[in-house]
């Protein structure tokens, strides 16, 4: 496992302490793991603390999934984690981004009944 693989795994497991440690050890925040994804793309969406550390270290919030065009904001909106949605937007994630099915994050939030996320994204 490379450092970036470890970073992506720690992010996906929601392990904030490990994410921070690996970044301090020099793991590239926008590096891709062996599956071609960045840590922010695969992070545990409910773990706002992990998102915060990655974004503080300069993670790009607008990287889209190579297969589906999904951005982290799409995923956070679809799963309904409003704190992570807010944070991503604060770090300039594009709320108008469209995935390969032409959906914006707000469309996914609406389809999944996450009204708080819908309300927040509408307010932008």
């Amino acid at each position: 496992m490379t450092l970036v693989d470890e970073l992506a795994t720690a992010a996906a497991k929601g392990n904030t302490a490990d994410v921070e440690y690996l970044l301090q050890e020099g793991a590239q925040v926008n590096g891709v793991n062996c599956f071609g994804r960045t840590a922010l793309q695969v992070m545990m969406m409910g773990s706002t603390p992990v998102a915060k550390v990655l974004l503080k270290y300069g993670a790009d919030p607008n990287v889209a999934d190579t297969s589906t065009g999904t951005t982290p904001l799409h995923d956070a909106a679809r799963t309904g984690f409003v704190d992570t949605v807010r944070l991503l937007v604060e770090y300039l994630a594009d709320p108008q981004a469209r995935d390969n099915t032409n959906c914006r994050p707000i469309d996914l939030a609406r389809a999944n009944g996450h009204e708080d996320v819908v309300a927040f994204l509408e307010s932008l």
Partner: peptide
């Protein structure tokens, strides 16, 4: 897959 576990939930 649910993008939050109880560990994260408690920490948060």
């Amino acid at each position: 897959h649910v993008d939050q576990d109880l560990k994260t939930y408690l920490e948060r």
